[in-house]
Design a protein around this nucleic acid. Sequence first.
DNA 1: AGTTTTCTCACCAAAATTGGTGATATAAAA
DNA 2: TTTTATATCACCAATTTTGGTGAGAAAACT
Lengths: 221, 221
Amino acid sequence: METKIKIHLADDHQVLIDGILAVLKTNPNFEVVGFSLNGENLVERVAKNEAHVLVMDINMPEKDGIQVLREFNEKGFTCKVIILSSYDDPKLIKEVIKLGASGYLTKQCAGENIVDAITSVAQGNQYFSSTIKDKVFDIFTENNQRQALSIEDIISGITTRELEILGYICEEKSGKDISELLNISPNTVETHRKNLMKKLKVKSSVGLVLFATKHNLISIQ
Amino acid sequence: METKIKIHLADDHQVLIDGILAVLKTNPNFEVVGFSLNGENLVERVAKNEAHVLVMDINMPEKDGIQVLREFNEKGFTCKVIILSSYDDPKLIKEVIKLGASGYLTKQCAGENIVDAITSVAQGNQYFSSTIKDKVFDIFTENNQRQALSIEDIISGITTRELEILGYICEEKSGKDISELLNISPNTVETHRKNLMKKLKVKSSVGLVLFATKHNLISIQ
DNA sequence: AGTTTTCTCACCAAAATTGGTGATATAAAA
DNA sequence: TTTTATATCACCAATTTTGGTGAGAAAACT
């Protein structure tokens, strides 16, 4: 082993960082050059430390993992990224792979898997656990077999204005309320609402709210 | 240090277990006697190993942390419990304290905090991080200062029939649909709906759905 | 036994939602 | 440049929801 693999860790759970730190310390090929508890300035910090591998959670304060990946692509950095997430939602996996992550592990994995994953992606390979590979397969078959619209397609068919209005509906605002908030005619608001209902195949505003909460289109406070 | 502190770890994230394991290994006073990835037979396993301290997550498959704590109380075990959760929801903290947990840490805490917490509770003390103490204070003031009805009081004011109808509303059923499902007059359904809106202080069916989802009165599928 | 709660139903009027069609201006994409 | 997508608005009719009041019967509680 000529040079050590430089690693940066990012997760809002400090206890997990400390734990992985302790695990990685046992391997002489690894050198943890930094860690972050949120996504702020993460790209800059990784670049400055010249880390080879970034092990990152998706859910982080300030800036989430998806945004960080986008930034990596925009700025053309070559640092390999391994996602370490609690969730194995197909939508998320699809997005993450599209954004060029080299690996994806769920937190159900063993500490040893992280060691393997880091070694693997540092050599230019990819590393996905078998459960993740299964999910990817599901996405593939879903996209090629079913002619019906997938949830992703439905969601991507919503316009920004519609999403904005959906947000207000989910805040218990009436049509008139919204029209006053946006300075548009009540008729327009109702048109948007109707188009939303048609697109999301629901029968009422309650259906809109249910769809939005189910697919995390809005944040519930 | 006469005898080592026997510790059992329970968390569905293996990587976190491995991490904490690595952290605790550095302290000669600690001995991890077992770990679990879910709540199944957790109480039995802890009892068999005669662990002094159980560090446990709330969210676990098979049996969650709350259920495990209940079982501990029923069976009268003396093992100290430290909750290590991602969430710091006041309701959860309140419940956990009521069930006799000796400590509560969020996963935002440092690995060192776990060491401190274990040492502390093993000596018979309690260990709560300052952010958790703040939350407890909030609960206290909420219960004693405000004369307004607490969420719990509001929820307990809902009758079974109303809850039933709330469930149907959250399934996007119309008033007429519900009246047919329950074989009652549409007027009755609307009366229930109106009473619900008054009790929950919301302005529309959307408000009802939001209240129900926020407080887990219904299960979203 | 008497009181309270819950469930039931009715009637009324105002307001809002739902389900259509059609049309215009503007911006984006092919 | 032509087409497409988006946002805007109007008009219409049917239906539903909302906000009241009042009231009877059954169940639960004191």
